[in-house]
Design a protein around this nucleic acid. Structure first.
Lengths: 216, 216
DNA sequence: AAAAGCAGTGAAACCTGTTTCACTTCTTGG
DNA sequence: CCAAGAAGTGAAACAGGTTTCACTGCTTTT
């Protein structure tokens, strides 16, 4: 026995791992998944392909982490926006605005995370990592119901629908070939859509029929 | 020259083409994309792999048609539902209900068309074939705006958001491993979500602030 | 400074489907 | 029924990526 991992080495190893993930995110953000094969990522991180496999047992594992990291940043920001004071509608509007604004700012990465056609292996991650977003909305909606601000409803259903609405409405504008649209209008429209979808305040005396013009 | 395609042959050729597409749809509906490789499709259609390539120059072309067909049925039904008389809200509720009900009935196929992680080549189709759905909603919304039933708004944005909401809210329940949820409740909830998202009737005298409990 | 083991290399093997192609079988017109 | 060309066969080639592995060269301990 003549080798023991010293702290310095450990640190370098961790740092290399970081570099790999960062390199992958960078390539994805810049060129999409097409530009993010294993050899390219390794090269970007200053490594050989083989070495990369000392850090991640497979591409799926690597991208799992890439997705988690890239998404986590956004989730954290949204969660923070969700924590700000206000009633449920205000909080949802805020989260929607924050989410959409950031997506439109980092278009290429947002497109990659939300919509870009991609290997099934990675696509599965995409599905998985929408759940934390949904849960942010679930929690706001449940607060709103408890507070009597919005009607009793299936919070998970509403939250899923909001997440889907956000994604789908952004895909067009995020697509690399999209012509630039009025971003403020888009963001405002989305926020209104989501808030309205929560339904009217439960106390309202108008019959639902009259309000919505449609029996449900 | 000693061979001219007779009508009988032409017919058989067309029929074989049909058989290929049907076989592909059947395999996708039954086993998902995993079970729908070219050799499997050819076998199901009673052909050799090589022969299949006389009908479709590539897998992408084949699946383009598979998607188009499978989706077209649904679009036709939705479009028909959209044509029924009623105000914009009623029509949208109806389309949403029809769409969701059918999706939940043909779960495996719906999952494949909406969400199953899949080859990027095919994923691109998925994106493309959402547009006709969107356009059904666009047209209803525009009618509603013209009729003064719903407020001025970006019809494409609202329609996209509705399509996204539908898809996302159904993915969970459609997933092969999902536990059975109350379908009527899901469908009703979705319809309400979408109708409410259109906003209140424009004539309403309540201030928007009061109505929504949130300045927008 | 030498031994022992780990990190790093990168070309080659591998994997998993699609796609091709030399050949066979069938269909038609003469 | 023969010639000519089309449809059909399926094993093999191909494609593009990921993954491996025998080797080189560090790092650490004694």
């Amino acid at each position: 026995m003549a080798y023991r991992r010293t702290e310095a080495v450990e640190a370098r190893l961790n740092e290399t791992r970081e570099r790999i993930v960062d390199a992958a995110i960078k390539l994805v953000a810049e060129y999409g998944y097409g530009g993010a094969g294993i050899p390219a990522i390794a090269a970007e991180a200053g490594l050989s392909t083989g070495a990369l496999y000392r850090y991640f047992p497979s591409k799926a594992d690597l991208f799992d982490e890439v997705f988690r990291r890239a998404t986590q940043r956004e989730i954290d920001v949204c969660a923070e926006a969700a924590r700000q004071p206000g009633n449920a509608r205000e909080r949802i509007a805020r989260v929607v605005q924050v989410f959409a604004k950031r997506a439109l700012k980092g278009r290429r990465l947002a497109y990659a995370l939300l919509a870009e056609p991609v290997d099934p292996l990675i696509e599965a991650d995409r599905l998985r990592y929408r759940i934390p977003y949904r849960d942010i909305f679930v929690s706001i909606i449940e607060d709103g119901i408890k507070a009597g601000e919005i009607a009793e409803q299936d919070a998970v259903l509403t939250a899923s629908a909001i997440v889907g609405a956000l994604n789908e409405a952004l895909i067009g504008p995020l697509a690399p070939q999209a012509k630039r649209t009025n971003q403020d209008q888009l963001i405002g429209g989305l926020a209104r859509f989501c808030v309205q979808a929560l339904g009217p305040m439960p106390g309202l005396k108008l019959s639902r029929l009259k309000l919505s013009g449609c029996a449900l």
